[in-house]
Design a protein around this nucleic acid. Sequence first.
DNA 1: ATTTTTGCAAATCATTTGCATATAT
DNA 2: ATATATGCAAATGATTTGCAAAAAT
Lengths: 151, 151
Amino acid sequence: MVDTQPLLNALADARVRSTEPRRAVAELIASRNGHFTARELVDDAAGLRLGVGRATVFRALELFVDLGLVERLDLPSGEHAYVACEPTHHHHVVCSLCGRSTEVEDCGMAEVAREVARRTGYRIERHRMELFGVCPECRAATNWNARATAG
Amino acid sequence: MVDTQPLLNALADARVRSTEPRRAVAELIASRNGHFTARELVDDAAGLRLGVGRATVFRALELFVDLGLVERLDLPSGEHAYVACEPTHHHHVVCSLCGRSTEVEDCGMAEVAREVARRTGYRIERHRMELFGVCPECRAATNWNARATAG
DNA sequence: ATTTTTGCAAATCATTTGCATATAT
DNA sequence: ATATATGCAAATGATTTGCAAAAAT
């Protein structure tokens, strides 16, 4: 459950209009824990009878991505997913079990990019780094289960 | 234009059958310079009247990906693309201008993953790093054009 | 008033699947 | 012979688009 404010603020600020459907999508996004798919939001909206259509969800997502408040991820499965995030350059670690995601800045990635540029002669303009694993909570849960099962 | 051999060898070796359609797809892949999409291969096959259908192209691509001879990329545009590559863990730098791609190993990425694990408590199980920029050839071409235009 | 945004249904695209036939082993 | 792989067309799913109506500036 992410704070709705940043998304709502963005609507207030930006050169875009603050509309009811957009606020609704912002809330749906904020109410989600980890990553989510466009379809999930569409289904949420339908389930809650928000009167927010598919196209609007996609358009709102695109808007938030442009504003840097939501990032699009490519899961290892090939699925497209999104996560709410800070509008600064950063990366995500995604939990394969619960879908929760955590932001991390740099961690040495910039240096890696520089090294790659050095070695290949490419002028690196952008990069994408996504990490997948198991979050602390799920690790704990898993260990607990393991013990419980083993015992 | 990548060497066809690795792909053909794989077909000879693997516990999969070496069929005409698969060899054809291997050639189509090898004949490409940079990255390519499934659709491009399908169109190539159709254009050349190879009698290789859409489904077969997708199935062959999946096979080669499983064998580690082709990797699936997610371009910044969101498109899915593929590149032929060595069957070892590595990463790609992709040229945004010509689509050519170069493989790089590690370059410090493993250390970054370790650092992220340290900071977040996640157990990192896999990662994806894709770099995009302009390759040396295109940089040269671009500079040349710039000069020619400026002069 | 004017411009932007919406919802809907239809259109488009990518990818997958069912299944009878053809091929590799 | 037997197990696999193929082609085709149809099915699925995701995302986009046209457009008249509705809402925001």
